[in-house]
Simulated scan of single mutants.
Amino acid sequence: MESMIHDMAERLFRDHVTHRMREDAASGQCPEALWTQIEEAGLTMALAPEDAGGFGVPPAEALGLVRIVGAHGLPLPLAETLIANAVLAAANMALPGGRLTIAEGEALRLERRGKKIHASGHLTLVPFARWANRIVTIGVLDGVDHVLSLPVKDLIVDPAQDFAGMPRDDIELDYTLTETDVTPLPRPVGGMRGLGALIRSLATTGAMETILKMSVQYANDRVQFGRPIGRFQAIQHNLATMAGETAASRTAAEMAAGSYDTPAFALAVAAAKARAGEAAEKVGALAHQIHGAIGYTQEHALHHFTKRIWGWRDEFGTELDWTRELGRAALSSPHDTFWHFITDSAAKGTQA
């Protein structure tokens, strides 16, 4: 099943996600036709449980789609929709279909007004908000986590964008929720920051794999001083560094995906997001050094990927935020040595 889902996504994105599409999306054009094909293929439901209409595959396999999203620079919220549907299903809420996105809801204020629940506050840098039908987030009411499904058409959207030109919109919320818009969360799901960090880690890994392939190809094609620049030791060293950073990030991201919905998730996603952020800085910089001036041009595809990984570094927590989480967990650990903390955390799933 993993091969079937991944192969389907690879074929679909390879055939339809072009340089022109990424350029058009960066200028504000949502690729509606491609989204229709993504939904018809059922990819948006891959992470939802089978009884909610999902594929019934292990979460790590479903989350593998996010790495493919990053590898193709897909300018649509498939990764966010996967998470949103999974969170809605965990709260036994209806899955509305369409494009969904997610946001951190810690800044929201929920209060009871008679029999209704009112939500107010701001959501910042919400991915693809203006292109989404609903925003899924988690807020706290009476000390209990509640899942909110917010209709974008009823909200005030302040458009903005990230480095790559993708929508990152601010939302002003002053909205009375209907019964179908809000439900108590029966069990923890990892928090919106953690879930967002997971998909950014996986997407960053996929994008860095594409950046590495582009750099290897360019180094083999570009001739200087009578030979391909890839034969120069300095270029080989840069490519080796990029390969190592990318491989380490993929390992950490896949470990986090494998720990989805388990007690090990908090630490695994903290390590994955921190590792991906570190790698993104190095891989992007080295790729542009190898490509030289051509890599900075609008016509070349490299910038679509480097801008994405640099923007994703700061979303859903920076590497500084997540390394602090790891540090707090290590300092509060009952283990005598740091090595025992690491090995026991990996085996038993110590919470951060």
Rank of each mutant, 00 (worst) to 15 (best):
D169I: 02
V17H: 01
F265E: 07
P75D: 01
A253R: 03
R11G: 05
K348Q: 13
T183D: 08
P184H: 05
H72Y: 15
T183Y: 07
M208R: 07
I5M: 15
G114W: 01
A94G: 00
P186N: 01
A219I: 02
W312C: 08
N85G: 14
P167V: 07
I171Y: 06
M255N: 13
L76H: 03
T183M: 14
G194L: 03
A234N: 15
H19D: 13
Q289V: 15
I135F: 05
Q217I: 10
L302G: 10
H146M: 03
E40Y: 08
R22H: 02
E319R: 12
I171N: 00
S201M: 06
A329R: 03
D221I: 05
T318R: 08
V157R: 00
G277I: 03
H19N: 13
Q351N: 13
K115N: 15
T204K: 05
L173N: 08
A279L: 07
T205M: 08
L155G: 10
D24L: 14
V144H: 06
V189A: 00
T323S: 11
G258F: 06
A107R: 13
G165M: 06
G28C: 13
T178R: 09
I290H: 00
A248D: 13
R187S: 11
E209W: 10
L185W: 06
M45K: 14
I235P: 11
F265M: 06
A264T: 03
L47Q: 07
G56R: 09
G244T: 04
T337V: 02
Q37P: 08
T251M: 12
V152H: 01
E61M: 14
K273A: 03
P228G: 09
G143I: 04
E106G: 10
T205W: 13
T205A: 14
D169E: 00
T204A: 12
A46H: 02
A257W: 04
I235N: 10
V136Y: 02
D314T: 15
Q298H: 13
A279E: 05
H6L: 11
R20G: 09
D158W: 12
L110D: 07
T137A: 06
Q289D: 10
T297L: 09
F225D: 11
H122M: 15
H300N: 14
I135K: 02
P159S: 06
G277H: 03
L286A: 00
E61K: 12
K153M: 11
M21Q: 06
T210A: 09
A243F: 12
E32T: 14
A103P: 06
E23F: 15
A119Y: 00
I211D: 04
T306M: 01
T350F: 10
G230V: 06
G165V: 05
N238Q: 12
E319G: 09
D142R: 02
A252E: 08
D142L: 08
E254F: 15
H304W: 05
T210Q: 08
G317R: 02
L141A: 07
A256M: 00
G54E: 04
N220L: 01
I5K: 11
F55V: 13
A207W: 02
R11I: 14
A253F: 00
K153W: 14
A79Y: 04
P188W: 01
F265K: 04
P127S: 07
V152A: 02
R112C: 07
D158K: 14
F163Y: 15
I38M: 11
G311Y: 05
P49W: 07
